[in-house]
Design a protein around this nucleic acid. Sequence first.
DNA 1: CAGTATCCCCCTCGATACTG
DNA 2: CAGTATCGAGGGGGATACTG
Lengths: 140, 140
Amino acid sequence: MNSQGFPKVTGPSDDKATPTMPPYNVFEDRCPTRLVLERLADKWAVLILARLEPGPVRFNHLRRGIKGISQKVLSQTLKRLERDGLISRSVFASVPVTVEYALTPLGRTLTETISALAHWAENNMDAVLAAQAAYDGAAV
Amino acid sequence: MNSQGFPKVTGPSDDKATPTMPPYNVFEDRCPTRLVLERLADKWAVLILARLEPGPVRFNHLRRGIKGISQKVLSQTLKRLERDGLISRSVFASVPVTVEYALTPLGRTLTETISALAHWAENNMDAVLAAQAAYDGAAV
DNA sequence: CAGTATCCCCCTCGATACTG
DNA sequence: CAGTATCGAGGGGGATACTG
């Protein structure tokens, strides 16, 4: 990478028009990229996005699919994701009302990236587990 | 992807030896892959890993490099990452003691994956911001 | 310099109950 | 079915002070 360390530091569109366009930098606490971090820092959000990958899912179905999530957290996380433009919410006026959540195109690009993480987990889980065991063993 | 939705569900090494090797599944709360999620669910951990990417860094240097982190959180997060085998801690008995933190080979493979996330943030930040503005605007 | 220890507040999350 | 409202416990994290 670069000398800064992390993100390739270029604004999304460096037109000369924008007066003070600071380059994105996760290490600055005012940087909007921290927002993405916050989003992923929510484990539930990640799981929801993952769960929506195959296709639209209804609220309670989502709830049952993600072991351990409460309806409150599910609800508020869904709202946040919708606000971020990552998922869409569609209401169908059926007899008992039906609501479907689905990935937006934007959300879909994120889940692609996230799946890279999932693969990392699959491939390196054992190494992490072993490291923990070694660390804990040595500590005793 | 697959029908399950998220991870390519295969054990890291599906030898026929292991008796009950449940396939990794993030949606199960007992699945070790949740551990990776927990790790990334810590925004500070991500920032630390990112910061270590260019090379070894000392404690206070790290602290100054990551705006907003407290020494307590830095300390405990470093310990966790070390336990997970993602970073190493080297003590140099110089006049004032010096400690360097660095990525392990394992940690390095993770930062590669994480940088994909950073690039996503760079490329899609504007879309997210726009979505938020639209959402908030419509709400009023 | 590189931490540990302590206090304390906030904010999240879970549980429960209620609504359209 | 798909949520919202309220309460209450818990823990993470910040600020500060101290140590080797």
